[in-house]
Amino acid sequence: MVSRTTDDYQAMVMAGCQAVCEPAFWAGFDRSSAQGFYDYFCQLTQHEPRRASMFGLPHYTWLCINPKESEDVGLAEEVLAIIPEFMKSPNVLGIGEIGLNKNSRNEIAVLEKHIDLAASNDQLILVHTPHLEDKRKGTQLILDMLKADSRIKPERCIIDHVEEHTVRMVLDDGFWAGMTLYPETKCTSNRAIDILEVYGTERIWMNSACDWGNSVPLAVPKAMQEMKRRGKNASYVDQVAYQNPIAFMSQSPRFSEPEGV
């Protein structure tokens, strides 16, 4: 949400959104120092929750150095060192979105450090999987790394950006699967609903992308309308769009189910 306008917040509230869950993200450009990340983490844990609260919207966040900036292991280690200070903030749900981008050895080294940070501090994990041609391989590498750490509980990890060729491996290993909806790239609303029809609604959620690129903050409300067009009943839509995210995030003691729903 850090790159969205207040109009987006207002539209989300009017569409029935109950909470925002914002992962640490690549800014679209590389930050030049760990100090840049320090400021960003202040924004995620202090400023953005205040901005969201002006619209009555609870704001939660995740912390990490995004895999797109993980090729520089030295910078990543500096950033990892400042994360524990921010993990004490009341709106931090866990470590994320960590993962891989191009599936390189350095990205894997930094992912291992993130996994260790999460496991050592009993944090939930939000994973970003690679794009396009790199997704299948990267998703498998990530799952193998998470499974190799005996401290990691799959039910406390959500593997985001699943598509038709990766959702099965995620669910079969006991992890949560996330479908971040985009208007064109990655997963569209209709394909997300297709995936739900094939794989069911257990341990799977959908969420709206709200980043600096072409994304639609109201993608989930629109997908809810599309589910109704396909004949899904209110209970089904509620399970996918509301109950499942609540179930996953409630594993963090920081998360409170929104009131008045």
Partner: peptide
């Protein structure tokens, strides 16, 4: 998709 399994 990249069909290989090893990191680059």
């Amino acid at each position: 998709s990249d069909p290989t399994d090893e990191p680059i």
